[in-house]
Simulated scan of single mutants.
Amino acid sequence: MTATSLRPRVAASENHVDAAIRLASIFAESAADLDLTGAFPTGNFRLLHQSGLVALTAPVELGGSGAGLTEAAEVIREIARGEPSTALILIMQYINLAQLLKGRWPEHLVRAVARDATERGALINALRVEPALGTPLRGGLPDTTARRVGEAWLISGRKIYSTGAEGLTWAIVWAKTDEDEPRVGGFLVPVQAPGVRIERTWNPIGMRATGSHDVVFDEVRVPLDHAVDIRAPSEWATREGQASWFGILPGALYTGIAEAARDWLVRFLKDRVPSNLGRSLATVPRIQQAVGEIEELLAVSRRLIRSAARDVDEGRPLSQSEAGLIKVVTTENAIAAVEKALKLSGNHGVSRANPLERHYRDVLCGRIHSPQEDTARTSAGLLALGL
């Protein structure tokens, strides 16, 4: 994706959540095609930028809207109801922009990234996962290496599952230095820099339009100050300031997918009139109870997400353990809700002529994101046991 230089055109009467609702209905029209082709949702991000949503969480003093976690979660949930791959790429954008003034970056790079996002709709993400390492949250040093040569770093390595890769302007590349005592951390790399190559490897069953391809770095040269945050490995025990966002925003996304599945189910149940019944399936008490079970799961998740996000915005951040549990509970609720919808719709639900099977494939991907179920629950258990 090429970032556009068009400045956002936001209607004075439209707030960010209303804009997300409006755009989600547009995105839903092309969601099936994006799922089929796996193409990057370039057009969606053009509209997001024009509506002032790409730089939603960038600090106000840097030209952004300065939105907190509560508003970001509402926007993500609504966008996911229309096209969830777009929402996942947007999650990574929101987390990284929200942290710009909270890290150790040089001021001129902070301003460059914020300016690109606010003026051009440019995207940024942290590329961390590797073939041998897996996710850094489970420990270990990356194979990707930054070698110092004079007044520059030369970065070489391969990143996999790089969300939004083909649409990024900036990548925060997780790498270790070649020093005797290696440091590890983020190196800010322009994705168009010489030596950066994207290999189109992403071909999953769900969330197919995230463009999460491999990114290869072959002696990519960046200035010394592009080592925006490198530290001793022991200093990276937690995702400072990010745990709450990584816990809440994925839950919002997958809740949005489940709501889209629920919406389709409700229409189906109202329209479906079996000849032996003589009235719509929606009138059957057993069906009504089953739909109520879906509503129960979704209502609990929405309340949990909003309450937790509000706590964060009011200065009460979640512990890493609590954030992980919220992610697990909300994503599992979403999966259970869509599975119940499949049960109720039978063959119609698994037919490719209907969107429910796509919602199911998409919602299952909630189990893949860090923190995963075993990590979150083991961490909580160790904390409770005082071990």
Rank of each mutant, 00 (worst) to 15 (best):
L249F: 10
W236T: 08
P355H: 01
E339D: 13
D263A: 14
L277Y: 09
E296N: 13
G346F: 07
D263I: 04
P250L: 11
S351I: 11
G349W: 03
L342N: 00
A252T: 07
R279N: 07
I287A: 09
I305W: 04
D225M: 11
Q289P: 00
R303A: 14
G292N: 05
A260V: 08
L281P: 04
A323K: 08
T255Q: 06
F268Q: 07
V312E: 12
R310D: 10
Y360M: 15
A260D: 08
G256M: 10
L281A: 09
E322H: 09
S244A: 14
S234Y: 12
I326Q: 00
I248E: 04
G241L: 11
A232R: 14
L344N: 00
D313K: 04
I287R: 01
I230V: 15
A308Y: 01
G278T: 04
R262Q: 13
R239A: 14
A243R: 12
P285V: 06
V329H: 09
P223L: 08
E293S: 11
T330C: 15
A237N: 06
Q242D: 03
V291I: 12
A299D: 15
G241N: 08
A227S: 09
A299V: 11
D229S: 12
A243K: 08
V329T: 13
S280A: 15
Q288H: 01
R262P: 01
N347H: 11
S307R: 15
R310E: 15
D313Q: 01
L249N: 02
A258G: 01
F246M: 13
L318H: 04
P355K: 09
E293I: 13
G278N: 02
E357A: 14
A308N: 02
L281H: 05
D311G: 10
R306C: 07
L224C: 05
N354P: 00
E235F: 12
P223N: 01
S301I: 11
I326H: 03
Q320E: 15
S301F: 07
R231L: 13
K340E: 15
L297C: 05
S280W: 00
P274C: 04
Q289G: 02
R267L: 11
R358Y: 07
I335S: 05
K343D: 14
V363K: 08
V284Y: 03
G346C: 10
E296C: 11
A252H: 01
V300A: 13
E322R: 15
D271F: 03
A323E: 03
L269E: 00
F246L: 14
S275G: 02
T238P: 01
L298K: 00
A243N: 07
R361M: 12
E314T: 12
E332H: 08
I248R: 03
G292V: 03
P355W: 04
W264E: 06
L325T: 05
W236P: 03
A341G: 02
A261P: 06
L344K: 00
Y360A: 15
L249W: 05
A299C: 10
A227F: 09
I368R: 02
A282V: 12
I305C: 03
R262F: 01
D311M: 13
N276W: 12
I287F: 02
S244N: 03
G256H: 06
R239F: 14
R231T: 11
W264I: 06
